[in-house]
Design a protein around this nucleic acid. Structure first.
Lengths: 151, 151
DNA sequence: TTTATTTAAGATAAATTTGTCTTAAATAAA
DNA sequence: TTTATTTAAGACAAATTTATCTTAAATAAA
């Protein structure tokens, strides 16, 4: 065994999160950014990332403008309201914090899988963390140099 | 978007965990079980599950006997020592609790990704939960009827 | 209006994970 | 020793995710 894709999120989600954080950091400076600039700063495949960001545009999390001088940006007034849970849910769905840890279709406190009670806290904590983490906050960390998207 | 495989673990890992719990519950009754019996009780594809359980045999987590009256079992004296972290690590590796949440190759407190500090607790809690959950405990829950593997 | 630039959308391809099938090896019983 | 049963191992196939490529649509400037 020994799989690749068993990080917390899918690649699509990782790219989406990183893209949003970069776009947000530039929106704070009133800059719209093209997809080429985004992927240069987050080290991700351009076409795939474009598709993911496009999905977030449809979800109204990101705004876009086509044509010359176009690009992506995040609405100033929206930025503080958007949290990680919106992005993860839009891309990966909610199964990571709502689904059964062992994949049972039906699993609840009444008829639990053997791991059910063990997962309750872990998942609630993950959900609450995603819920309370705003894009604004993450983008500020990046802009100020406290964090990085490239390593 | 909206992906399938974004539960906590891979399908391989889900099947492996369920198989181990069932095998353990029968080992408590001094019963060896054939793979056909295992998959009937955990609702998983037989050949795929056999391959995964086979990998756990190589890791010395499960014991096996070939031929008539053969099958799988878990050593009585080992059972209390085996925890979820052994199984998850054997199948999915450790990236879910050791890797960067945003997929950076290098990410630590010194040069963190924007989510780093947010993930620290969630991952530590997940790791400690897996570490402290023994197969014995899970198998007892199943055997006593408190939990189920089929729904 | 024409051209250049950029996102949008969808077809296609590659890689990985999930799943099946076939043959070999081991073992117990007849 | 032969046969039947079971796991072991590896080839093969299907499904899903990841990634690329091509064409369309939108928009700004010349």
């Amino acid at each position: 065994m020994a799989y690749q894709n068993l990080t917390m999120f899918s690649k699509a989600c990782e790219y989406g999160i990183k893209a949003i954080i970069y776009i947000a950091s530039q929106s704070m400076l009133e800059r719209r950014v093209k997809i080429g600039e985004v992927v240069e700063h987050i080290d991700s495949p351009e076409a795939f990332t474009a598709k993911i960001v496009g999905a977030l545009v449809k979800e109204n999390i990101v705004q876009s403008v086509t044509g010359p001088y176009g690009g992506f940006y995040i609405d100033k007034y929206q930025m503080g309201q958007i949290t990680m849970i919106d992005i993860v849910t839009a891309i990966d769905g909610d199964s990571i914090f709502n689904g059964c840890g062992l994949g049972l279709k039906d699993c609840d406190a009444e008829q639990p899988c053997p791991m059910h009670s063990k997962f309750v806290k872990v998942r609630a904590d993950l959900k609450s963390m995603l819920n309370s983490t705003s894009i604004f906050e993450l983008a500020e960390g990046l802009k100020s140099g406290k964090s990085t998207l490239m390593r």
